[in-house]
Amino acid sequence: MNFRPTIVAFLCNWCAYTGADLAGTSRLKYAPNIRIIRIMCSGRIDPTFVLKAFQQGADGVLICGCHPGDCHYQEGNYKCLRRFKLLQKYIAQMGIEKERLQLEWISASEGKQFSELVNNMTKTMLTLGPSKIKSSLEVEYIK
C-alpha cells in the first residue's frame, strides 16, 4: 500500500485555527493528511503533546501560532518558539528527523499560506517516509 503520512497539527484558536478555517471558506484545496487539534494559544503546547503524537504514529507534527507580536495572549507564541527549538533537538536525539516537527506563524488572514504549508509539509513527509518511532517503541515493548 502507498504510504499515507499522518500529520498532527496544533493550531492556536485566534490566528492559525482561524486561518485554517479561512482556507476552508476560500475553498482552497490541500492534502487530506492533516489532523488539526485546537488549543487556545501556541503557548499551551506541552512537549508531551508533541511526543504523544509521535508515539501514536504521527509522521509529522505541525505547530502554528500567531505571528510574532500578534499573539492574542501577548507573548505565548514566543514561549512556544523556545520550546519548539528545544523539542526539535530532543526528537532528533530520539531518532526522529527534526523536519518532522515544524513551527509556522499563520495569521487569521493567511488561509492560502496555510494550505500551501500543509501541502509542502505533506511532501516533506512523503520524502522522509514513515516515521519509525512507533514501530521501534513497539519492539521495545514486546521485549
Partner: peptide, 10 residues
C-alpha cells in the same frame, strides 16, 4: 487569568 494555558505547559 485569560486561559491561554502557557503556565500549564510550563
Amino acid at each position: 487569568c485569560k486561559g491561554c494555558g502557557t503556565c500549564g505547559s510550563a
